[in-house]
Amino acid sequence: MAAEVTLRRFELSDVDAMMAWASDPEVAAFCRWEPYESTAPLLAYLRDTVLPHPWFRAICVAGAVVGAVSVSPTAERCRGELGYLLARAHWGKGVATAAVRRALRAVLAGAEVEGLARVEALVDMDNPASQRVAEKAGFRREGVLRRHYWHKGRARDMVIYSFLATDPLPECE
């Protein structure tokens, strides 16, 4: 990986950079949403969901926004759910792994999310690249949740990963 991966809060002005990957059917394949076809609904999502979110960050490479990583609260305050996605041009280069490691350090070591004891990642069984990201970032595979999630017309098996606040924090490259 040549350029440093950094995380920062999103801004409304990031909508065009987001559109580059949010409109890509391959990026959206394992996401809950369909590829965006115009910036207006993406701008609304950015304004209404991303900006007020407690921990939703832009993944940047050489200052350019190339993806997103989030840790979302769950019904159990000690748990957060990790989500990440990346522009296709950056797949397979260690960018997602570096971003997830940075996110873990921020939310667990930086006390940005009070009371967080566990970060979970639920990864589609048919997404081995995302499973590798979780594993390389230091998450422990706990098992498969069979037919756990209704996604784009069918029930999907999900691999559940966890990272505990007591686990050694991963090094950031």
Rank of each mutant, 00 (worst) to 15 (best):
L51K: 01
A22N: 09
A129E: 10
V69A: 10
W33Y: 07
F30I: 05
K93W: 14
Y161M: 05
Y149C: 14
A111G: 12
S72G: 13
T97L: 04
F139D: 02
G153R: 04
P128D: 00
D48H: 04
G115A: 00
V50S: 10
L82P: 08
E135F: 01
E4R: 10
H53W: 05
M158W: 04
R88G: 14
H148E: 05
V133A: 02
L82F: 09
W55S: 13
V50H: 00
A99D: 09
E11S: 15
M1S: 14
R8M: 05
Q131D: 07
A117S: 15
S13I: 02
Y84C: 11
A96I: 02
R141T: 02
W33A: 13
H53N: 06
V107W: 01
Y84N: 13
R77P: 15
G67P: 03
G143A: 08
R105Y: 01
V113Q: 12
G115E: 02
M18E: 10
E34W: 07
H151V: 05
R102E: 15
V15E: 03
R141Y: 04
L43R: 05
E4F: 11
V113Y: 06
P168F: 03
D16T: 10
T97Y: 01
A109C: 09
P41Y: 06
A109N: 08
Y161W: 01
S13D: 11
A58Y: 00
L116F: 01
L51V: 00
E142D: 09
G83Q: 04
W91A: 07
E11L: 07
A134H: 03
R118Q: 06
A155M: 11
H148M: 05
A3K: 14
S130M: 00
G63I: 06
A165R: 02
V159A: 03
L7G: 06
A28D: 11
L42K: 02
K93R: 05
S23Y: 11
E81I: 06
R101H: 04
L7R: 04
R140M: 06
T49V: 15
S72L: 11
D167S: 14
R47N: 07
A96T: 07
A58R: 00
E81V: 04
M1Q: 14
A3P: 10
G115R: 01
K93H: 13
A20R: 13
R9Q: 09
A111M: 12
W21K: 11
H90G: 10
Y161Q: 05
T74V: 10
L85I: 10
A165D: 08
G115D: 01
S162M: 06
R147Y: 07
R147H: 14
P52Q: 11
